[in-house]
């Protein structure tokens, strides 16, 4: 099937709308008394959950393309990554501005003394340069190899985000471990691809550059 620009636009538009659904649900629940007895905590938790979900989803297209040869999800990678950053930013702002109401004393202590908070903050910090450099212009400016290396930070952010989640729960860490398992699978897939390629390179030098590494459509598309 051919990917016409119209189809790509339709794909992106539907993904865009889907990414807004969790926010719409929060708004809907807020107006219908559906956020429970502690709505501030509920919104904070949901924003965090969707940050991790979207961040994990944004890491799916690359291994899917390299392992299965299915390339169309790559067209959604930037959108998913940017939405992950948007949810992460809302999560952080909600904590700072609503949950703690700009209590600087608490916030400073959080970042300096509480590893669970520090790790979450660093996760957000590591997503910020990725969001900034997500445009085609920045891919050109950095050159694709460098841009790609930089954007591997997404994995670090995901790991830190999951650690933040594990350290956040008091006892039942089932949900963060589900995220961790999925992320381990995605990372494992990429390592497997690399190893296979390295083996191919020793066997037949000159054919080593895999098809998935050409950069076509990366960031852009």
């Amino acid at each position: 099937m051919k990917w016409t620009p119209a189809r790509t636009r339709a794909l992106k538009a539907s993904a865009f709308v889907l990414c807004l659904v969790p926010l719409a649900k929060i708004a809907f629940d807020a107006f219908t008394d559906g956020l429970g007895a502690n709505p501030i905590e509920q919104v904070l938790n949901r924003l965090g959950f969707w940050t991790l979900t979207l961040l994990t989803l944004s890491l799916v297209p690359t291994p899917v393309k390299e392992l299965l040869g299915v390339a169309w999800p790559v067209r959604l990678r930037r959108l998913l990554g940017l939405f992950a950053f948007a949810y992460a930013t809302l999560h952080l702002c909600w904590y700072v501005g609503v949950d703690q109401f700009f209590d600087l004393h608490v916030l400073a202590k959080d970042v300096l003394k509480r590893k669970f908070m520090a790790v979450g903050f660093v996760a957000w910090l590591s997503l910020a340069p990725l969001a900034v450099t997500s445009t085609d212009r920045w891919v050109r400016r950095l050159g694709f190899p460098r841009w790609k290396r930089l954007h591997r930070l997404a994995y670090a952010a995901a790991v830190l985000g999951i650690v933040h989640f594990v350290w956040r729960v008091k006892a039942d860490a089932l949900r963060p471990y589900v995220f961790a398992t999925i992320l381990a699978g995605l990372l494992g897939a990429r390592v497997a691809v690399r190893l296979a390629r390295a083996r191919a390179a020793t066997a037949a030098p000159g054919l080593a550059r895999g098809a998935g590494d050409t950069g076509a459509g990366a960031g852009g598309a």
């Binding site: 905590e41 608490v106 202590k109 509480r114 350290w167």
Partner: peptide, 12 residues
């Protein structure tokens, strides 16, 4: 160790 106990949110 993970949060401050100096303040609390009264439900509501």
């Amino acid at each position: 160790p993970r949060w401050s106990q100096a303040r609390e949110r009264r439900i509501g």
